[in-house]
Amino acid sequence: MKIMYHHRTRGRHVEGVHIRGIVHALRLLGHEVSIMSFPGADPEHESTIQGHSKRGRIASAITRLPGVLFECLELGYNVVTLFRVGAAIRRQRPQLIYERYSLFLFATVWLARRHGIPLVLEINDSALVERVRPLRLKGLARRIEAWCLRHCTGLVFISSYFRDQAQAAYGQIAPSVVTPNAVDLSRFDPSRFDAARLRADRGLAGRIVCGHIGVFAHWHGVDAFVEAIATRLAEVPQLALVFVGDGRTLPAVRALVAERGLSDRVLLPGRVAHEDIASWIACMDYAVLPNSNQYGSPMKLFELMGMGVAVVAPDYAPVAEVIGDGDTGWLFPRGEIAACVQRVLDLATQRDEHRRVGDAARRYIERERQWRNNAEQLLTLLPAEGAH
């Protein structure tokens, strides 16, 4: 089947990983997939969109525009979509359009209906949830979203919470499936790494390592976690923290670590390329996700679990859909940072528990959360004759 994957994102970082994962899985299932990207963004060649090109710099500038102006440009992007996707439809004649849904974008749904092509929307964002970037034209965004969710062929939600919110707000929407994120186990395979050598190279030999991968943003709670655990690290002298990533709160975390004299206990390597993430996870005995949100399906969760590293995580519904407490990870009451710290400290010396739960986490990923599973599930939304 000929499939067109359309998205309006910059195709970078986590969104790029997700796009590549789905596209590669569909191709492995025997389908012909083309990607229609935001001009200047190609998730299959991420190095070309890191802001070095003129288009990349323009895209970066656009994202920094004031809220209402930025949203008006998002709305105006429908004109671009009508011409670009319309031309691609006439040229490629796809049998399915799969779109990573973006706020204010309705042109693809309209085009698919006009040409009689099935269209499946993947819902990672919504006008119904609290977002990192506040939504100004909320009423208009919700009206457009309701129309899109009712008039596409099918919907892929990343969590049950997302689907429940959409059904409550918009009533009768298109048929849907709930498909959390996934991982490429060929890249996230612990057998590829010499963990002892990596630990020695990074000053972690002889340590119990609790790690984290992700953006240093306030809502991820890394700064609050480090501040809360800093005064208690002496309780477990062997414990070291490795927090990989970059973001707004990283300078404050670095300053705290330096001020408390914890540079030998808290390693902050900053942002690393996605292809190097697995080597850092290979150094970890277990991991922590200090905070998340009501609707998200954190990619880092799947990459850690795929490497056989179990996670201490908040009990938000999308996380609890993936982690069974004491089975494939450990849960604590969301928003309670003291409970998170206590769970991390209690588990620190339980090496057998790290291995038992970590092994179960990897088996779960192998069984249910590879990109192939996501691709197979989205195809069930098509009419029987279009799913082959």
Rank of each mutant, 00 (worst) to 15 (best):
E321G: 02
V156S: 13
G386Y: 14
L82Q: 12
L289S: 08
T249A: 14
A338V: 06
R197P: 00
I97Y: 10
A87E: 12
Q350C: 08
V120D: 02
E368N: 13
D359G: 02
V120G: 03
Y170E: 07
R363M: 13
A112R: 00
G358L: 01
P269Q: 00
G206D: 14
W371P: 01
L256E: 06
Q377I: 01
Y295N: 05
G270D: 02
S292D: 11
V178R: 02
V244G: 11
V257G: 03
A141W: 04
R114K: 14
F162W: 08
I97P: 11
A169Y: 03
Q167H: 02
V129K: 13
Q294M: 07
V68W: 07
L155V: 09
H274N: 15
Q238T: 15
A240Y: 00
Y295M: 08
H7F: 05
P66Y: 03
D264C: 05
H220I: 01
V341A: 11
Q342D: 15
I123F: 07
I173S: 03
C283Y: 00
Q238D: 15
T108E: 02
I58V: 15
H13A: 14
R271P: 00
V79T: 10
D42W: 14
D285H: 15
A360E: 14
A240T: 14
I208M: 12
M305C: 08
G86F: 02
A25Q: 06
T349R: 15
G30N: 09
L250R: 15
